[in-house]
Amino acid sequence: MTGSAAGFLEDSAGYSLVDFVPFSAEVYFRLIERVGETFWPLHALALLLGLGSTVLAWRVRPRLACALLAIPWAWTGITFLGQRYAELNWAGRWFAGAFGLQAAILLLLTAIGAGFDRTEGGALGRQPRVPYAAGLLLAMLGVVIYPIIGPLSGFGPFQAETFGIHPDPTAVATLGIALVALRGAALWLAAIVPLLWCMVTGLTLQVLDAAWAVIPPAAAAVALIFTAWKSVRSFAR
């Protein structure tokens, strides 16, 4: 840990939440926009990647789904957090590292081949259905719904947060896809970084007064509940 980072943690008592966010809403949403502008039209490819991963997880090809998910984590970790967000927040380097770690975890799980859920019947044909259905809904929230949240809230088209381009929809969709594709310890391992990011970004968006600030932590709560449910059911068998 750097001296500054350690200093901040040591020195943090007595601050309010707003004092942990060193940039304004204007700057953060401009960052979202600049990244959107810079990588257009990569959004279409990212969308296909998100939909493809979801379908593969659903149609019992979890290993391939998991491998594909590593790409957006590495990409957003480098291009969004490491190269841009870190200019605004010293913690950005640590967040970028966490995204890189998540990509590594997904690739490791793919390589090992353990912990994949290959229950026959497609996600909605499996028993119990509820965790799989919740996973698919979270994946659709991240891939399909997230890009329209910004524009519906009055932001410009390039401020549409997109799976694979921006970190929040990437984390939300990953929680959903992991819920469908993985089980047991592998599921928990794949969910830790996305869960933590959803809490971090939820608190940040709350400070920035974003109307959708509740969505990432709510998605994390849903994922947590059904991950626990799935684990308990697996253990009971």
């Binding site: 966010v21 060193p22 940039f23 304004s24 700057v27 401009r30 600049r34 841009r84 200019e87 605004l88």
Partner: peptide, 13 residues
């Protein structure tokens, strides 16, 4: 300059 001047490399800002 806390928060107000932390705009990164954004030329416009």
């Amino acid at each position: 300059t806390w928060q107000t001047f932390n705009v990164g490399g954004d030329e416009q800002l």
